[in-house]
């Protein structure tokens, strides 16, 4: 049994390490410091931590103002509020002027669990991806999340990093080297490319093992940076396999599935199956139950791969 950790846990830890290294880092929170784990930064650097209360729009616009004075702002909250309620602040005050604000919300996707649909974003990747110049990162596990949060400080301009609430199996370790904009081939295969992001990377690896036993050789690529998309790595995999399953804990509209389909339609048309949430809202339940209900298990990926390879 491998270690299980939520990607949100990486947020507080990474912020504390960044806080020691960079005196100009400021963290803004919207009344969720315990849930998002920014409380760790608050304890270490109270003078650079500001709780904005339940006011996400003001938090985002203030982050932009702080950035004009040379601060690097990390802003949190839950993904639904950071990308939904405060969308236009992110668009107009942060992204349009290309300010140095890192948007790292937690509780993305349906694995929020029992809180239900009001708190489960299935649209956040789409919302952030469509903003000109926004970098969009969806880490696969705790270790990738921590590296991404730390590397983001060196990226000039806005970065969105999607974090989750549920503890999920780790894939990497402390030695993992995250490079923004670079997709990573985790497993070589010949018959089908599984392009996965976020917690679906683990499911993709499991699926590839299962498929291997069934005589299907699946390649697994971790597409943690959804924008800018690593076209080279994706195309080199797809040119070899000729078939693609995309897997994400997000709506099949507007997320990685869309990004990959857009790329392949233009550059290398091949059959694509999208494993994701099929234009629905979430519901209450335990994360594992929800992943099963919405068709986001390794078996769902395997089934999609089998259908594609049966052509």
């Amino acid at each position: 049994m491998s270690e299980k950790r939520a990607t949100r846990e990486a947020y507080g830890e990474a912020l504390v390490e960044l806080g020691h290294e960079y005196p100009n880092i400021v963290v803004l929170e919207a009344d969720l410091a315990k849930s998002t784990t920014t409380i760790k930064f608050k304890k270490e650097f109270p003078e650079r931590f500001f709780d904005c209360g339940v006011a996400e729009q003001n938090m985002m616009a203030m982050a932009a103002g702080l950035a004009t004075t040379g601060k690097v702002c990390y802003t949190g909250s839950f993904a639904i509020f950071a990308t939904g309620r405060a969308f236009e602040q992110v668009r107009n005050t942060i992204s349009y002027p290309k300010l140095n604000v890192k948007i790292c919300p937690t509780h993305a996707g349906i694995t929020v669990g029992p809180d239900g649909a009001s708190h489960q974003t299935v649209e956040d990747i789409a919302l952030m991806r469509v903003i000109p110049g926004m970098m969009v990162i969806v880490p696969a596990d705790f270790y990738e999340a921590k590296k991404a949060i730390k590397v983001a400080v060196e990226v000039e301009g806005p970065v969105f990093i999607r974090l989750g609430r549920a503890a999920v199996p780790t894939i990497f370790d402390d030695s993992y080297n995250f490079v923004p904009g670079k997709a990573v081939r985790l497993r070589e295969g010949q018959d089908v490319s599984i392009l996965a992001t976020g917690i679906m990377v683990g499911a993709g690896l499991k699926s590839a093992e299962d498929l291997g036993r069934q005589g299907i050789s699946a390649e697994v690529v971790n597409v943690s940076t959804i924008k800018p998309l690593d076209e080279e790595t994706i195309l080199s995999s797809v040119e070899k396999t000729g078939k693609v399953v995309v897997a994400e804990e997000h709506s099949i509209i507007g997320g990685l599935g869309s990004a990959v389909a857009e790329l392949l339609c233009e550059k290398h048309p091949v059959p694509v199956a999208r494993v994701g949430i099929k234009d629905q809202f979430g519901r209450s339940g335990e994360p594992a139950e929800l992943l099963k209900h919405y068709g986001l298990t390794s078996e769902d990926i395997s089934q999609a791969a089998r259908q594609l390879t049966a052509y």
């Binding site: 400021v26 616009a61 103002g65 602040q89």
Partner: peptide
């Protein structure tokens, strides 16, 4: 000093600037 136009937001960015300064 900062891009504005969408109402309400400039005021909020000004608060952020005052805090940063």
């Amino acid at each position: 000093e900062i891009s504005t136009g969408s109402l309400g937001m400039g005021f909020s960015t000004a608060v952020g600037m005052a805090l940063g300064l």
